[in-house]
Amino acid sequence: MAEHKESSDSMAESLVEKITEKLHGDDSSSCSSDSDSDKKPNSSPSSVKAKTYRLFGREKPIHKVFGGGKPADIFLWRNKKISAGVLGSATAIWILFDLLEYHLLSLVCHILILLLAIFFLWSNAATFINKSPPRIPEVQLPEEPFLEVASVLMTETNRALAVLREIVSGGDLKKFLGVIGGLWVLSIVGTWCSFLTLFYICFVMVHTVPVLYEKYEDRVDKLAERAMIEIKKQYAVFDAKVLSKIPKGPLKDKKRA
């Protein structure tokens, strides 16, 4: 009887061990499946994001491309009052100097004459009516916005000079043809309007195109990707039919020798 009882106890213990092992195995498999399922959605967005095409090979946000800070806020209409004021001032300057053919020196002199006459008459009139003359506020322009604009201009100018140096050195034929075509189009546009009108058009485009691109970024990038694929196909055909048939000079052979 004792042996029978011991054998039944050992069978029960082995049965319990098998059940616990099976439960642990199911838990580990479910955990592994859950971890795999967790890894899949985390890995898929990164792979999709890595394949996303951005215009001009851009890797930073639009705000960082414009240097960040107050100039970028103005261009991207972060503060609508300041951006509208800047654009309105540029429009008024363009109307005065281009449409009305007003001269800058005459405008500055007339404004100063008007301001001096107003404050002078106001101060003298205040003494006759026994009132204190008006207190003229002290005006000082902030230094930070001018430094930020100068920094952005310096960075972009240095980048343009680096690109021009690379083009002049003959390293990239595609960039050379692109710059030549852009300058040719710019020369044609210059015959249609004055320099001030052209500058105003560029100024308006800087204040409108980036903010529209930021709003419809994904759609524009998809269209730009298709356009770049088509341009590359056409350039490959042009290279095969025209550029590859241009005879190379003996300068490279002499340099190698």
Rank of each mutant, 00 (worst) to 15 (best):
S7T: 09
S8Q: 03
S8G: 05
D9M: 06
S10A: 01
S10F: 02
L15W: 09
E21P: 01
L23R: 05
S32W: 07
D34K: 12
D34M: 15
D36V: 14
K39P: 06
N42M: 11
P45G: 11
P45E: 13
V48F: 03
K51S: 07
E59C: 08
I62Q: 04
K64E: 13
G69T: 13
I74D: 01
W77R: 11
S83K: 03
G85K: 03
L87W: 07
G88K: 08
S89Y: 05
I93R: 05
W94E: 07
L96K: 05
L96I: 06
L100Q: 06
H110C: 01
I111L: 03
A117M: 12
F119G: 02
F128D: 01
N130R: 13
I136R: 06
P137T: 15
Q140D: 13
P142Q: 10
L147Q: 12
E148D: 12
A150E: 11
S151A: 10
E156H: 10
R159E: 12
I167N: 02
V168H: 03
S169I: 09
D172A: 00
F176P: 00
I180G: 12
L183I: 14
L186N: 13
I188H: 07
W192Q: 08
S194M: 00
L196F: 08
F199K: 07
Y200Q: 05
V206G: 00
H207E: 01
V209R: 00
P210I: 06
L212S: 02
Y216G: 01
K222A: 02
K222C: 04
L223I: 03
I229A: 00
E230K: 10
Y235N: 08
V237F: 08
L243R: 08
K245F: 10
K248W: 09
K254F: 14
K254I: 15
K255C: 15
